[in-house]
Design a protein around this nucleic acid. Structure first.
Lengths: 252, 252
DNA sequence: TTTGACCTTGACGCTGCGTCAACTTCTAGC
DNA sequence: GCTAGAAGTTGACGCAGCGTCAAGGTCAAA
């Protein structure tokens, strides 16, 4: 008793292309190949196909199925691993949904695109900075802090940020020195603003690291394209950087 | 103020390959291309990249992002559509998980692989049959019936099925006629067994269709590779088929 | 001028097949 | 015996979003 590729495919509800694919990837070889190259399948092959289709219907990948069929992995273990992977994926999507909802609400609440861009850019940049210098955990803390805020709190924080930036721009325009009292007052405010974010060295009271971070941040405002234009122009960013450097050197 | 591909990529935390890819797919063109072919990006391009990366981080696909950036779709609408897609996906995975858990429990409870194969095969086959002959709805009903059963009930049903098959094999081995009283008793039991499945014509009391289904099922036991060996051999399957045909003709 | 870093285009790989394309083989009717 | 049509074969592109060589041109510093 044996069947041609089409007979088997039709009965199994799949395409002959799929069977050829399974043959090519070594998942299911035909029991016999005629001198003409035709593939023929016997009941043993059909049984194997059964198992393949069951696992496939459960969403397992072909390599994982192959391992189970090759007896490298126990069927139960394979399924358990698959469940774990599925749960992981589900949780990831769940987080994704919350994140998108959050963004959508913020957008609807009137947060302008540029605002959003600025903050997201800050977050991203901050992420890289924090991860590379103080490890992944610190980023996790401040990230949770941000996403744990209510919409009102986020908007309020955005407002604070905008005010601070506006003050910097005004000071830079005024042509005063970065070492002047007014600039240093702004620098102090900037550092306080930073310290609101938990998980940062400034918030954690680590002096050496705080200084390094404040200086590094100043440099980034100048060098990083993502902050381009944040302080109006290159001169504005340089002003902020110089003021922050001076503050870090003399007041921290 | 402009940056080379590498400068921008490093700051943005992506690869230069990604930027080239975005250029190729028309998502983000460099603001200027030198005579040497080098790509250069200005602050406008950086801002656009910002928006792209934000949406990408939210899990949106590049084509969807392109539509939003091209103002074909409102940002909020894009996000809403994305949320809907994510929720769909999450629900799908959720169903997937339940299904795999179910299978795993059945397997651990001692259902042997061959049993599982046999029943899954039956379900699949039955699905094709029912869908093609009585429409999708009927399949839905019987599928829900199966998945609505508790594990114990499923195992009990499997046991019934096994007993029935064993009885058929014994009768076929005994060399009796398919029209004999013993064979016809088995056929009656087979039809009762079938009628337990809701949504089938037998369960619904549709006489003409019941007869057609019982006969068709008998034919399938012989012709379909997925039932190969279920009744031991071709002779066994033929015996069942003949008995069912006789029963359908004379008793239904 | 050399070296090394950075730029370019081109192309394969991954997942699981769908979908032509081009060609050979089998089957059935006249 | 011939021919049409159904079914078989291999080969290759496409899909999402890049990672990853490969081969070669350009640029900046020593």
């Amino acid at each position: 008793m044996e069947w041609t590729i089409q007979e088997l495919a039709t009965r199994a509800g799949i395409s002959s292309r799929t069977l050829r694919h399974y043959d090519r990837v070594g998942l299911l070889a035909p029991s016999r190949v005629g001198a003409n190259g035709y593939r023929y399948y016997d009941p043993t092959a059909v049984a194997r196909l059964q198992r393949i289709l069951i696992m496939r219907q459960l969403g397992m990948g072909l390599p994982a199925i192959a391992k189970v069929l090759a007896d490298e992995v126990d069927t139960c273990d394979g399924l358990r691993a698959h469940i774990a992977a599925l749960e992981e994926e589900r949780d990831r999507i769940e987080r994704q949904i919350r994140s998108v909802r959050h963004t959508l609400e913020a957008l609807q609440a009137g947060a302008e695109p540029r605002m959003d861009v600025m903050l997201a850019g800050f977050n991203d940049l901050y992420k890289d900075e924090v991860i590379s210098r103080w490890g992944e955990r610190a980023f996790q803390v401040s990230n949770d802090w941000w996403h744990g805020k209510t919409l009102d709190q986020q908007l309020a924080w955005k407002q604070d940020t905008e005010d601070l930036v506006a003050a910097w721009v005004a000071a830079a325009r005024a042509g005063i020195s970065p070492t002047s009292a007014r600039a240093q007052t702004l620098a102090a405010r900037h550092v306080r603003w930073l310290s609101e974010i938990p998980g940062t060295p400034t918030a954690d009271g680590k002096r050496e690291q705080s200084i390094a971070m404040v200086k590094g941040l100043g440099d980034m405002y100048v060098d990083d394209p993502r902050f381009a234009g944040m302080y109006e122009d290159a001169a504005g960013a340089a002003f902020v950087r110089d003021a922050l450097h001076t503050y870090a050197r003399t007041q921290m």
